[in-house]
Amino acid sequence: MVLLSVADLEVRFHTADATVHAVNGVSFELEEGETLGLVGESGCGKSVTSLAIMRLLPQPAGRITGGTVTFRDAILTELPEDEMRDLRGKEIAMVFQDPMTSLNPVLTVGEQLTETLMAHRQMTRQQARARAVALLEMVGIPRPATRLGAYPHQFSGGMRQRVMIAMALALEPKVLIADEPTTALDVTIQAQILDLVRNLTADFGTAVILITHDLGVVAGMTGRVNVMYAGFVVETGTTAELFAHPRHPYTVGLLRSIPRLDDTRHEDLVPIEGQPPDMTVAPRGCPFAPRCAWREERCVAENPALEPVVPGTPIVTTGPGATHRAACWYPATDEEARHGAPLRAAGGAA
């Protein structure tokens, strides 16, 4: 069952000297129990997309200027703020990259957890306390009853991230948005946290949107993935299909530009040339064109839509049978993807 539906979402930031085209018509759906990865380089709109879903865009600069977000029957983009506040945490919860931004530094972890539970779950203080202990235990905090009295700064980075996850899962939300939940952590701690998220979501059937720039994390954690570039989804499909047969030149570039731990051949890395896009310029043509080795004249003039890579395939948007789609006029072949560059002679920028 589809829980969350994002349709043609457009977000702009109006700053003193420019308009930032942060999200430019993003559409995707999320069904119960699945884990969707959002990948792409810094500034491509991953966080802004999720903040828009949560209606937590920085004010007054950030505005949803188009599209809708629907959770079950509720159109979130039209919901009054008090109803939205009710829904946050209870139906859709978010784990932020920097836990200190969402933990209150002057309240103990116990106070924060019990307040949330009492407000939303009509529990007595005693019941809420017992549940808080259980939650901390579930995320692997040792001696949870004594740790309830500790303040956020008294926890290590990994522990704080666990507390954040405990808070996000306190009300058993249907959707969990995790924005780079492990980026600031060491790899051995990252492995602990990802293991935890994997087990919890399997136990509760929570649908997860996992934002990361680490393709390894995507490969290990997600069933489906959206690759974003310059505020667009440029490729989507099941994680297995997308990694095995990347079609969009940007995805191809990402996969060829990172060294792999299990690479014994010392293959040359193929960097993506050029610079990340300037988001203050209104997009025209394909956003990846300035850096694309596959580019042809048409690319500069017309922005391709996200279409099935096998033309005419019916579109399935969610689950293990999701249709592989890419937004590209001249998608890479498997051979080109392995090579990291176009093989045909005509045209091209490189």
Binding site: V187, T188, Q190, A191, Q192, D195, D214, L215, G216, V217, V218, A219, G220, T239, A240, F243, A244, L255, I258, R260, L261, D262
Partner: peptide, 20 residues
């Protein structure tokens, strides 16, 4: 080494980790 994710879903699906 076991904690480092490998950008290959087929490899990751087979992989076991040593969780410290």
């Amino acid at each position: 080494l076991s904690a480092i994710p490998i950008p290959d879903p087929a490899v990751e699906a087979r992989r076991r980790r040593i969780i410290l």
